[in-house]
């Protein structure tokens, strides 16, 4: 579904990605793990058109995404839920969700998707006309995911959805991710919480200083001794 080949991205003179290749097949949950500055977020931002690659290719369902602005990428069916959530705090929860559907014209579909979101996240339904800034961290994350889903994506890019959240909330978020896959959304997940992410995903990539250091099925990665010491905090 998504195919990245030999992707190079730089910030000025500093190379952030040095030949990353990865792929995501329809219906998969694929996890990208790695330390700070390994290039995880850069990868997602390049897919969604925020950054322009120096070289390399990104194809989605057979068509190249390179050079497309974010808006076009969203139209193709990819939605990016960014690190730090970046919800619009001064807008209402309902408005945040509606903005996720900014490029859709089918008002009936939007309305039914809105109901679906409220069903999926009942906390949001109760407070739909409140300012999003009044939500707690976990609720904001759910809103951010909900907002991304409102564009009706086939591929969802999730950047650190568990960042800074309490363990109980993290559980909920990961449950949502698994549910989403069951509803037919393919997911590319970037996580610091490698342990949990590997448990729910099919395959995983490990990035180190802008390169793919390791890849394979998640359950094998979980058992890998090197990975366990480096990213899972167990020895």
């Amino acid at each position: 579904m998504l195919e990245i080949k030999d992707l190079h991205v730089s910030y000025g003179k500093i190379a952030a990605l040095r030949g990353v290749s990865l792929s995501v097949a329809e219906g998969e949950i694929v996890t990208v793990v790695g330390g700070n500055g390994a290039g995880k977020t850069t990868t997602l931002r390049t897919i969604s058109g925020v950054l322009k690659p120096v070289s390399g290719s990104i194809t989605f369902e057979g068509e190249s995404l390179v050079g497309l602005v974010s808006e076009k990428v969203v139209r193709r069916g990819i939605s990016h839920s960014p690190e730090g959530r970046l919800i619009f705090g001064r807008l209402s929860i309902a408005e945040n969700l509606r903005l996720g559907a900014y490029n859709r014209k089918d008002s009936a579909g939007i309305a039914s998707d809105l109901d679906r979101m409220y069903e999926m996240f009942p906390v949001l339904a109760d407070r739909r006309s409140q300012r999003a800034g009044t939500l707690s961290g976990g609720e904001q994350q759910m809103l951010a995911i909900g907002r991304s889903l409102m564009s009706n994506p086939r591929l969802l890019l999730l950047d650190e959805p568990s960042l800074g959240l309490a363990p109980l909330i993290v559980e909920q978020i990961f449950k949502v991710i698994v549910d989403l896959r069951q509803q037919g959304v393919t997911i590319l997940l970037v996580e610091q919480n490698a342990n949990e992410a590997l448990r729910i995903s099919d395959r995983a990539y490990v990035l180190e200083t802008g390169e793919v250091a390791m890849q394979g099925p998640s359950d094998q990665m979980l058992k890998d001794p090197k990975l366990r010491t480096a990213y899972l905090g167990v020895d």
Binding site: E71, V74, H80, L86, I87, L99, Y102, R147
Partner: peptide
């Protein structure tokens, strides 16, 4: 939305 966060607005399409 754009005046609150231009980057985020761009990102969500």
């Amino acid at each position: 939305a754009s005046s609150e966060n231009l980057q985020a607005a761009r990102l969500i399409g």
